Simulated scan of single mutants.
Amino acid sequence: MARRLRPVGMDFIEAAPVRLVFAARTAAPPEEVYQALAEEVGDWPRWFGAVTLARPTHGGAGREIRLRGGVRFRETVMAADPEQRYAYRVDETNAPGVRALLEEWRLTPAGSGTHVRWTFAADGPTPLRLALTAARPGLGHSFRTAVRTLDSRLTARRAAGR
Protein backbone atom coordinates (compact mmCIF):
# COMPACT_ATOMS: atom_id res chain seq x y z
CA MET A 1 0.00 0.00 0.00
CA ALA A 2 1.29 3.39 -0.89
CA ARG A 3 -0.41 5.90 1.40
CA ARG A 4 -2.45 6.25 4.54
CA LEU A 5 -5.53 8.42 4.21
CA ARG A 6 -7.00 10.85 6.71
CA PRO A 7 -9.27 8.98 9.12
CA VAL A 8 -12.81 10.30 8.93
CA GLY A 9 -15.97 9.52 10.87
CA MET A 10 -19.48 8.79 9.65
CA ASP A 11 -20.25 12.52 9.52
CA PHE A 12 -17.96 12.68 6.48
CA ILE A 13 -20.79 11.12 4.43
CA GLU A 14 -22.62 14.47 4.61
CA ALA A 15 -19.62 16.82 4.83
CA ALA A 16 -17.29 15.47 2.12
CA PRO A 17 -16.25 17.86 -0.66
CA VAL A 18 -17.26 15.22 -3.21
CA ARG A 19 -20.45 13.26 -2.60
CA LEU A 20 -21.72 10.94 -5.30
CA VAL A 21 -25.05 9.30 -4.47
CA PHE A 22 -26.64 6.53 -6.52
CA ALA A 23 -29.80 4.49 -5.97
CA ALA A 24 -31.33 1.28 -7.29
CA ARG A 25 -33.97 -1.25 -6.26
CA THR A 26 -33.80 -4.96 -5.74
CA ALA A 27 -36.47 -7.62 -5.49
CA ALA A 28 -34.47 -9.11 -2.61
CA PRO A 29 -35.40 -8.10 0.94
CA PRO A 30 -33.00 -5.97 3.02
CA GLU A 31 -31.75 -8.90 5.09
CA GLU A 32 -30.51 -10.71 1.97
CA VAL A 33 -28.89 -7.60 0.50
CA TYR A 34 -27.20 -6.83 3.82
CA GLN A 35 -25.90 -10.39 4.10
CA ALA A 36 -24.33 -10.12 0.63
CA LEU A 37 -22.75 -6.74 1.43
CA ALA A 38 -21.49 -7.30 4.95
CA GLU A 39 -21.29 -11.02 5.63
CA GLU A 40 -20.28 -12.43 2.23
CA VAL A 41 -17.51 -9.95 1.46
CA GLY A 42 -15.49 -12.55 -0.46
CA ASP A 43 -18.30 -12.86 -3.02
CA TRP A 44 -18.19 -9.20 -4.11
CA PRO A 45 -16.16 -10.00 -7.28
CA ARG A 46 -19.00 -12.30 -8.40
CA TRP A 47 -21.51 -9.45 -8.58
CA PHE A 48 -19.55 -6.17 -8.61
CA GLY A 49 -17.63 -6.11 -11.89
CA ALA A 50 -15.07 -3.50 -10.80
CA VAL A 51 -13.96 -5.64 -7.82
CA THR A 52 -11.36 -8.34 -8.48
CA LEU A 53 -10.66 -9.31 -4.86
CA ALA A 54 -12.54 -8.70 -1.64
CA ARG A 55 -11.75 -10.27 1.68
CA PRO A 56 -12.62 -9.49 5.26
CA THR A 57 -9.75 -8.64 7.61
CA HIS A 58 -9.45 -8.27 11.37
CA GLY A 59 -12.34 -10.66 12.05
CA GLY A 60 -14.70 -8.70 9.79
CA ALA A 61 -13.80 -5.27 11.20
CA GLY A 62 -11.87 -4.46 8.03
CA ARG A 63 -11.66 -5.32 4.36
CA GLU A 64 -9.05 -5.63 1.65
CA ILE A 65 -10.31 -4.68 -1.81
CA ARG A 66 -8.70 -4.75 -5.24
CA LEU A 67 -10.25 -3.17 -8.30
CA ARG A 68 -9.72 -3.65 -12.00
CA GLY A 69 -6.77 -1.56 -13.06
CA GLY A 70 -4.78 -2.37 -9.92
CA VAL A 71 -6.25 0.03 -7.36
CA ARG A 72 -6.06 -1.42 -3.84
CA PHE A 73 -7.77 -0.42 -0.60
CA ARG A 74 -7.44 -1.40 3.04
CA GLU A 75 -10.59 -0.42 4.84
CA THR A 76 -12.19 -0.20 8.27
CA VAL A 77 -15.86 -1.10 8.60
CA MET A 78 -17.49 1.97 10.18
CA ALA A 79 -21.13 0.85 10.36
CA ALA A 80 -22.68 -2.58 10.12
CA ASP A 81 -26.34 -2.17 11.00
CA PRO A 82 -28.14 -5.34 9.86
CA GLU A 83 -30.73 -4.76 7.16
CA GLN A 84 -30.12 -0.98 7.25
CA ARG A 85 -26.57 0.15 6.52
CA TYR A 86 -23.04 -0.94 5.74
CA ALA A 87 -20.23 1.61 5.58
CA TYR A 88 -16.46 1.50 5.35
CA ARG A 89 -13.60 3.99 5.36
CA VAL A 90 -10.50 3.61 3.22
CA ASP A 91 -7.41 3.74 5.44
CA GLU A 92 -4.73 2.94 2.84
CA THR A 93 -4.66 3.02 -0.95
CA ASN A 94 -2.37 3.19 -3.93
CA ALA A 95 -4.84 5.51 -5.74
CA PRO A 96 -3.20 8.89 -6.32
CA GLY A 97 -4.60 12.09 -4.87
CA VAL A 98 -7.17 10.66 -2.48
CA ARG A 99 -6.99 12.21 1.00
CA ALA A 100 -10.13 10.64 2.52
CA LEU A 101 -12.75 8.18 1.29
CA LEU A 102 -15.86 6.73 2.92
CA GLU A 103 -18.60 4.68 1.30
CA GLU A 104 -22.04 3.91 2.69
CA TRP A 105 -24.71 1.48 1.50
CA ARG A 106 -28.18 2.34 2.91
CA LEU A 107 -30.93 -0.26 2.70
CA THR A 108 -34.59 0.69 2.96
CA PRO A 109 -37.52 -1.73 2.60
CA ALA A 110 -39.42 -1.11 -0.64
CA GLY A 111 -42.45 -3.36 -0.85
CA SER A 112 -41.06 -6.89 -0.84
CA GLY A 113 -37.67 -5.62 -2.05
CA THR A 114 -35.04 -3.07 -1.09
CA HIS A 115 -34.15 0.47 -2.08
CA VAL A 116 -30.32 0.55 -2.13
CA ARG A 117 -28.52 3.89 -1.87
CA TRP A 118 -24.74 4.05 -2.25
CA THR A 119 -22.90 7.20 -1.20
CA PHE A 120 -19.29 7.67 -2.28
CA ALA A 121 -17.74 10.47 -0.20
CA ALA A 122 -14.22 11.66 -0.96
CA ASP A 123 -11.70 14.42 -0.44
CA GLY A 124 -8.59 15.31 -2.38
CA PRO A 125 -7.03 18.13 -4.37
CA THR A 126 -9.02 19.96 -7.03
CA PRO A 127 -7.90 17.70 -9.93
CA LEU A 128 -9.13 14.60 -8.06
CA ARG A 129 -12.43 16.29 -7.21
CA LEU A 130 -12.96 17.20 -10.85
CA ALA A 131 -12.01 13.69 -11.99
CA LEU A 132 -14.44 12.07 -9.56
CA THR A 133 -17.23 14.41 -10.63
CA ALA A 134 -16.49 13.56 -14.28
CA ALA A 135 -16.51 9.86 -13.37
CA ARG A 136 -20.05 10.09 -11.93
CA PRO A 137 -21.77 8.50 -14.97
CA GLY A 138 -19.34 5.56 -15.01
CA LEU A 139 -19.57 5.01 -11.26
CA GLY A 140 -23.36 5.15 -11.46
CA HIS A 141 -23.40 2.61 -14.29
CA SER A 142 -21.04 0.33 -12.35
CA PHE A 143 -23.24 0.58 -9.24
CA ARG A 144 -26.51 -0.08 -11.08
CA THR A 145 -25.01 -3.04 -12.94
CA ALA A 146 -23.64 -4.44 -9.68
CA VAL A 147 -27.01 -4.14 -7.93
CA ARG A 148 -28.80 -5.82 -10.86
CA THR A 149 -26.25 -8.65 -10.85
CA LEU A 150 -26.51 -9.02 -7.09
CA ASP A 151 -30.30 -9.06 -7.29
CA SER A 152 -30.18 -11.81 -9.93
CA ARG A 153 -27.85 -13.88 -7.74
CA LEU A 154 -30.09 -13.43 -4.71
CA THR A 155 -33.22 -14.27 -6.73
CA ALA A 156 -31.56 -17.45 -8.03
CA ARG A 157 -30.49 -18.36 -4.49
CA ARG A 158 -34.07 -17.94 -3.21
CA ALA A 159 -35.42 -20.02 -6.11
CA ALA A 160 -32.94 -22.78 -5.26
CA GLY A 161 -34.16 -22.69 -1.64
CA ARG A 162 -30.85 -21.60 -0.10
Rank of each mutant, 00 (worst) to 15 (best):
T114R: 02
R153Y: 11
R106H: 03
Q35R: 15
L154V: 04
R3W: 08
P137R: 03
T119Y: 01
R74D: 09
L130P: 00
G62V: 04
G49M: 08
A15R: 15
G111W: 03
L53A: 10
R66Y: 04
G138N: 08
R63F: 02
R6Q: 14
G49E: 14
A54H: 03
V21S: 15
T119Q: 08
G49H: 13
G97E: 10
H141F: 12
R129S: 08
A36E: 09
A27W: 09
Q84G: 05
G62Y: 06
T126E: 01
P56Y: 02
R136L: 02
A15I: 08
T126A: 05
G124C: 13
Q84D: 00
A36W: 07
T108I: 00
M1L: 15
D11H: 15
G161Y: 02
V33T: 00
A122S: 09
R74F: 03
M10N: 11
L154G: 12
P30C: 07
A38M: 02
S142Y: 03
R4G: 13
M1R: 14
A134S: 00
T93A: 10
R4S: 14
F143Y: 01
V8F: 11
Y88A: 11
H141T: 09
R63Y: 07
V18A: 15
E103I: 03
E14F: 14
V90D: 06
L128F: 11
R6D: 12
R19W: 13
R144V: 01
R68G: 06
G49S: 13
G111E: 07
L67F: 05
